[in-house]
Simulated assay, not measured.
Amino acid sequence: MRLRPAFAAAAAVAVLVPGTASASPVHVATAHGTFAAYAPGAHAVTYRPDLVPPGARAHVFSLSGARTGTMTTLVVTGLRPGRAYGAHAHAQPCCATGDAAGPHFQHVPDPVKPSVDPAYANPRNEIWLDFTTDRLGTGFALSQVDWTFGSRRARSVVVHETHTHTAPGHAGTAGARLACLDVSF
């Protein structure tokens, strides 16, 4: 399990950074943190220590290129074993409450808020990183979308209570916001 994220990252680099002078620009974002209770300046916050214990860790790696879109990986350790979680890129950084991270980042924003229309709240228009932890509390997720960030960028990844729902009226919802990691996409 530990090598899978490294292999995914190496494969993405090989695809997104060809050895030619005509290669399109590539943007790399990485973030990691150890979850703790909120304190000013915190970059990895747990809001539900029963489901994301203090000391649990998260790592995000993202590559964006005009020819290939954006690939994002999430690796978590120290969470509750054998449990399904949702996770998404959010519009704002982490703060004292999970709601402060704002809505999911959408490449094409839904004009209706909150966004629960599957035409907008879907894994092609948002970065969805749902995972299920193994017996040790480790989880891994991969998102691949065909777009890159422009002047608007996601600012965090939020871990949610359940896998993401897809039905109309509930699309994009995944329960309570359990934890947040700042990411400079």
Rank of each mutant, 00 (worst) to 15 (best):
Arg2Asn: 14
Leu16Trp: 13
Leu16Arg: 14
Gly19Gln: 14
Ala21Asn: 04
Val28His: 09
Gly33Met: 04
Phe35Val: 05
Tyr38Ser: 08
His43Arg: 14
Val45Thr: 10
Asp50Lys: 10
Gly55Cys: 08
Ala58Thr: 05
Ser62Pro: 05
Leu63Gly: 02
Gly65Lys: 04
Ala66Met: 07
Thr73Lys: 01
Gly78Arg: 01
Gly82Val: 11
Tyr85Trp: 07
Ala87Tyr: 05
His90Ala: 08
Thr97Ala: 05
Gly98Thr: 09
Asp99Gly: 14
Gly102Arg: 02
His107Cys: 07
His107Pro: 06
Val108Tyr: 11
Pro109Phe: 13
Asp110Met: 11
Pro111Tyr: 08
Pro114Leu: 11
Ser115Val: 13
Ser115Cys: 15
Ala119His: 04
Asn122Ser: 03
Pro123Gln: 05
Asn125Glu: 00
Thr133Cys: 00
Arg135Lys: 14
Gln144His: 13
Asp146Asn: 14
Trp147Ser: 02
Trp147Ile: 10
Arg153Ile: 15
Ala154Gly: 13
Val158Cys: 12
Val159Thr: 12
His160Thr: 06
Glu161Trp: 09
Thr162Cys: 07
Pro168Tyr: 00
Ala171Lys: 03
Ala174Met: 05
Gly175His: 09
Gly175Cys: 11
Leu178Asn: 05
Leu178His: 03
Asp182Tyr: 04
Val183Asp: 08
Phe185Cys: 07
